[in-house]
Amino acid sequence: MAISYEELTTKHPCFARGEKNGSGRIHLPISPSCNIECRFCERSFNNYEIRPGVSRTVITPEEALDAIRRALEVCPDIHVAGIAGPGDTLASPYALETFKLIKEEYPELVKCMSTNGLLLAEKAQEILDVGIDSLTVTVNAVDPEIEAKLNDGIIWHGKHYTGVEAAKILIEQQLKGIKILSDAGMTLKVNTVFVPEINGDHIEEVARTVAEAGATIYNIIPLIPNHKLKDCREPDCVELERVILKASKYIDVFRHCQRCRADAVGIPGGKDYGEEIYQNLQRLTRKDTFSHG
């Protein structure tokens, strides 16, 4: 049985009440590939960018156990083992394989996973079986016309879908998966990338819809202008506060997201031990390691 939301507020930095709870996390860069084509996402291998989708390398499930061991030696305050990329966690089998190993070797750690949600409904039972405690789903729109401006397409069951057709499938699968897993007792957080020109007036509707589907907490992430949306602007603090207040009518809103890398290690806002933990595993450095399939 997944741990409760109340317990997560004391162990998981993304569920902390107030600015921080002193808990650390290790992000395990396990998942190399992705099955959707977000217009704002450019996955990269480097050691300097601070944003999702960036990692020094990709490791194997077995290497993840060694990374956890070494991370706990340098930062005993780590209570969470998370997988958030650099691709999507359900687009390849490695994340679920890793969580199965963590369940056996480090049962005391909170197991946290992030996904775009395209395969969430059909992988729901596997997610429950490996003992994941909290799940984050990125839902950027619940209107297909808006989603199509944020995501060029998806690969679903071996077929490439684009535009509004792809958006309809993605949204349907995201909400279906959130409902299944919330009904099973799992705590779900929803992330939304806030692009003022595209979904700025839509976030309140996203918050209402995901809350109705069973999400517990909501995280609005300001756009980092990048890739095909590099000419869009990052929202300012006033705009962000405005959409937070609107979303708060329906769901608890997380207010101190660090927009972490896929290989972040340590307490958010403090020293990052990622270089130390992953320095001997930096063998993948090419963007074409990622595939949409």
Rank of each mutant, 00 (worst) to 15 (best):
D288S: 12
E19Y: 09
D288L: 02
L240N: 04
E165I: 06
L175E: 05
N47I: 04
G269P: 13
V210W: 02
A81K: 01
K103P: 00
R69W: 01
M113H: 02
C14F: 09
R25T: 14
E197Q: 14
L96P: 13
V243R: 08
D201Q: 15
L119P: 00
K189T: 13
D66Y: 07
I26Q: 04
S33M: 00
D263R: 00
T89S: 15
N151F: 03
P29V: 10
V190H: 08
Y94A: 05
L170K: 14
Y5Q: 07
H202S: 14
E126S: 06
K100P: 04
K249V: 03
D152P: 00
N46C: 09
C75G: 00
N191T: 05
K11D: 02
I198R: 04
I155R: 05
L101K: 10
F99I: 09
Q258C: 01
A81L: 06
L150G: 12
I220C: 08
L72S: 04
G117K: 04
T289R: 02
P196K: 09
G269E: 12
Y48R: 10
V80R: 01
N151E: 15
I220V: 15
V58M: 02
I78G: 07
R283P: 00
I30A: 04
V74A: 07
L284M: 06
F194P: 10
N116M: 06
A167K: 07
